[in-house]
């Protein structure tokens, strides 16, 4: 599938989701849907670094919280429309991703992961002691009843923003996957030494990955204070963000953009259902059990299972005598489908 076609399809699906959300007129569904979409963005963002290059980031919550607290800070200093705050938060979190990458990417494997965990702890300590943004007591963000778009409630407005972010992150992830960058990332994931030997500038590419990944996580966090109305460090830096951002791509499949989407919709919905039917306390238990199950039974996630049973050979190479246009754009064939 060409990039432009993919953008069209994603936009149409997003429009349909938004229309359905408006028609259903349920505040609960909007809230739940917002949370699921937020996880789509976080999981997709995590996967750009973790799935494509193989560097496991335990610090998702730090980037999410940096986005959220950028909003809180801006809200107090010079209030801006939410979409602008999203962009600023993305820039700040992207910068953080770059910095983290620069300091830690010479570390491999578990050492890199531990460093990202440490980053989350350090940043949480900073925020707890930063009184301007509420410190440990937290901060209230009063949500106006109506959004800036006529006819939309504020919560519908935030839902729309998160929906747009989810669409954007999927488009970005897929574009990366099919591009020169995507092949460079895959080479890094498979064998960094061989990647270098083939001319891939591994450090630069890893920095690009941490920056993009961090930026999207920060953007996902930016509307959070407005959505929740009250923010405190313990919730913004919560363990569920880090755990879900890893579990969702792992369960969906880490090698293609579809994996994090599938994982986020599945696990996100499941957790919403569990929250109303049992208790939110079981959420992480569900995630944990599913993750263990998948790691053992289907290490390549749902996308991997799909590929195994429907046998799509995910390679883009065709002899040049034949057409180079790709046959179809199904999830299974997408990872290295030639781009426009």
């Amino acid at each position: 599938m060409r990039n432009s076609l993919f953008i069209l399809v994603v936009s149409l699906v997003a429009a349909a989701v938004f229309a359905a959300a408006l028609l259903l007129r349920s505040d609960y569904l909007l809230f739940a849907g917002y949370t699921v979409l937020q996880f789509v963005v976080l999981a997709t963002a995590w996967n750009i670094l973790g799935g494509y290059t193989g560097y496991v980031n335990f610090g998702t919550a730090a980037f999410f919280a940096v986005g959220a607290y950028t909003s809180v800070f801006l809200h107090k200093a010079f209030p801006l429309p939410v979409p602008v705050m999203v962009v600023v938060a993305g820039a700040v979190a992207g910068l953080l991703g770059f910095g983290m990458g620069y300091l830690t990417l010479r570390l491999r494997g578990a050492f890199f992961s531990i460093a990202t965990l440490a980053l989350a702890v350090v940043l949480q300590t900073v925020v707890v002691n930063w009184h301007y943004v509420g410190g440990s007591r937290g901060a209230y963000i009063l949500r106006p009843p109506a959004g800036p778009i006529a006819g939309l409630s504020y919560i519908e407005y935030l839902f729309l923003i998160m929906l747009a972010l989810a669409a954007l992150s999927l488009i970005a992830a897929r574009a990366i996957e099919c591009s020169r960058l995507g092949y460079g990332f895959a080479a890094i994931r498979d064998d960094e030494l061989a990647a270098e030997a083939n001319g891939v500038p591994t450090l630069r590419l890893k920095l690009i990955a941490t920056t993009i990944s961090g930026a999207f996580m920060g953007m996902a966090g930016a509307p959070f204070p407005s959505y929740i109305g009250y923010i405190e460090p313990a919730s913004a830096f919560g363990l569920p963000y880090a755990v879900n951002a890893i579990a969702m791509p792992m369960i969906g499949g880490t090698t293609s953009w579809a994996g994090p989407l599938i994982g986020a919709v599945l696990l996100g919905s499941l957790q919403q259902i569990a929250t109303v039917t049992i208790s939110s306390a079981v959420n992480l238990l569900i995630v944990g059990l599913l993750l263990v199950g998948f790691v053992i039974v289907a290490p390549n996630g749902i996308v991997g299972l799909w590929q195994r049973f429907f046998g799509r050979n995910r390679t883009s190479w065709r002899p040049s005598s034949k057409s180079t246009a790709s046959a179809s754009g199904s999830a299974a064939s997408s990872p290295s489908t030639p781009s426009a």
């Binding site: 080479a187 083939n198 390679t315």
Partner: peptide, 16 residues
């Protein structure tokens, strides 16, 4: 590169 096909293995040095 284990996750890339033989053809895509060749693609990497071509791209870079």
């Amino acid at each position: 590169f284990a996750s890339l096909s033989v053809a895509d293995n060749i693609r990497v040095p071509l791209l870079y």
